[in-house]
């Protein structure tokens, strides 16, 4: 099953965040709780962890891109 991971809203006033780094490449296995990417907003660097285990199927943005809150960032193939 495909599952989307979105840009989280970390604070009520947050509108977007910078996707700073991918910590996994496409095709990598990811276990739930493992950090998948890092975002920065308002001087906070935040590690975003996978909510489920699976394979990182698609990175939807490049490092350095600004992404709107709740927009899909990654597609995870879960069992």
């Amino acid at each position: 099953m495909e599952k989307e991971l979105t840009m989280p809203k970390l604070r009520p006033e947050m509108k977007d965040g910078v996707l700073c780094a991918w910590l996994k490449e496409e095709g990598d296995m990811v276990t739930a709780g493992e950090p998948l990417f890092e975002i920065e907003t308002d001087k906070v660097v935040n590690q975003i962890e996978a909510t489920e285990s699976g394979v990182l199927k698609k990175q939807l943005f490049e490092e350095g891109d600004t992404v709107d809150v709740e927009a899909p960032v990654a597609i995870l193939e879960t069992k």
């Binding site: 950090p35 308002d42 001087k43 906070v44 660097v45 935040n46 590690q47």
Partner: peptide, 21 residues
């Protein structure tokens, strides 16, 4: 502002975060 400390209008302190685990 969101994460500075000032005396009057002049900044004396800036801060930043890292959130993990």
């Amino acid at each position: 502002r969101s994460c500075d400390i000032a005396i009057g209008e002049q900044k004396i302190s800036g801060s930043a975060q890292r959130v993990s685990g």
